[in-house]
Simulated assay, not measured.
Amino acid sequence: MTYNENGEIVDLNRKFFSKIGFNYLIYLICTLVFAVILMILISNTELANNPNIHVIITAISNYILPFPIIFFLMNKLDSRTLEKESLSIQRFIMYFCISFTLMIIGNIIGLAITSLIGNATQSDISNPIQTLINSSDIMMNLIIISIIGPIFEEIIFRKLLIDRTVKYGARISIILSATLFALMHGNLNQFFYAFLLGGFFAYVYMETGKVTYTILLHIMLNLIGSVLSLIVAESADAIIQGLATPFNISIVALYMMIIFLALIFGLLGLSNYKKAKLTNIKTEVELANPMKTVFLNYGMICYIGFTILIILYITFGA
């Protein structure tokens, strides 16, 4: 134990995680402040009603402007360099199938819970990201949501975070990465699949030591959700209206086949990896009360509380 000048016990590990919590709180507040400023700047122009501009503002305020801030703050903390290991093509494909399956499972859980809440409160629970995707141009979705977003999110919530917490063990890093990542999304619809994917991406990053793999997985999943799903939806509408072409039928059939195969291999992969251990990760610092030390500190409580308020506002107040 360490004592301060007043003779009080200071838990340096809890203080360390508190700093992380405050760092991510500052990052989150910055994203909101930048978004408000940019929206004010275009409020009296024609750009205010352009959904593509909203996507651009989302990218600038969520990633471009606040990234140097979180990078600077996290670089002030002690970090570790993970051992590098390459994945075979077969294993990478398996990891994609697992990621896709976790996304589907998380989506089902999210839809079920938001439906229950919606029925109980007699209101629709909105998904702001999905609304943005549906209203914006496919090319914007491709560039910003499917490529720029995953690159920054994996660096911020995997590399910067895990490199600094891995000394406390794989389990703590995975849970923390998943939790902060899920809460950052700020809505119930995305929370559950973001939590599952955040945890699995943390596992992949620690196994390989290469954030490139998680970025690629993240990009592939976002492409399916923000680009391919729109193309498939258009083809499905054409089929329903009796205006389908062979191309429309082929697109829908190929999409359904990919989903089916990804789910089958993903479920098989999950059954094989449920007891997987990261033997290359050595716990340097043992915590007597891990979850209490990690989450019950001023920084983490403030971050979690702030994100919960955002989720409640979007769920019930928006």
Rank of each mutant, 00 (worst) to 15 (best):
K15E: 15
M1E: 09
R80S: 07
G266A: 07
L38P: 07
I57L: 15
K274Y: 13
A182P: 10
E85H: 14
L183P: 07
S229P: 00
N222V: 11
F316L: 09
S250V: 09
F152M: 08
A178C: 05
I215K: 00
N189W: 02
K210G: 04
N289E: 14
L270N: 02
L196H: 01
G169Y: 00
M103N: 07
T245C: 12
A262Q: 04
N6S: 10
Y313S: 15
E8G: 04
N23K: 00
K19Y: 14
M94W: 03
L296K: 13
G305C: 09
E5G: 06
L217E: 01
I231L: 12
A244M: 03
G199P: 09
I148L: 15
D137C: 12
D78H: 06
A170C: 01
E284R: 07
L270V: 01
I93A: 14
Y255R: 01
V10W: 03
N134A: 09
V10G: 04
V33H: 02
N62M: 15
K277V: 08
I60K: 09
I251N: 01
L254I: 15
A253D: 11
V55I: 12
Y203H: 10
F96W: 12
N75V: 05
S43H: 07
M1Y: 13
S88G: 15
K274V: 12
K275M: 14
I40M: 13
I239Y: 11
Y255E: 08
A244L: 12
M39K: 14
I145A: 03
F157D: 02
G242E: 02
S88V: 08
V166S: 06
V211A: 04
P150E: 10
S229E: 09
D124I: 12
A262R: 04
F295K: 13
I57K: 07
T81P: 00
I98E: 00
G209E: 04
L268C: 09
I145V: 14
T165R: 05
L87I: 12
I231F: 03
M140W: 08
E207T: 01
A276K: 14
I145M: 13
P51L: 12
L263P: 05
F72D: 00
E207C: 04
Y313D: 05
S250R: 06
H218C: 11
G149P: 08
G198C: 09
A112N: 13
L296F: 14
S99Y: 04
F72L: 13
M140R: 00
I162F: 04
C30T: 14
T245D: 06
L261W: 11
S177Q: 12
E284S: 09
Q130I: 05
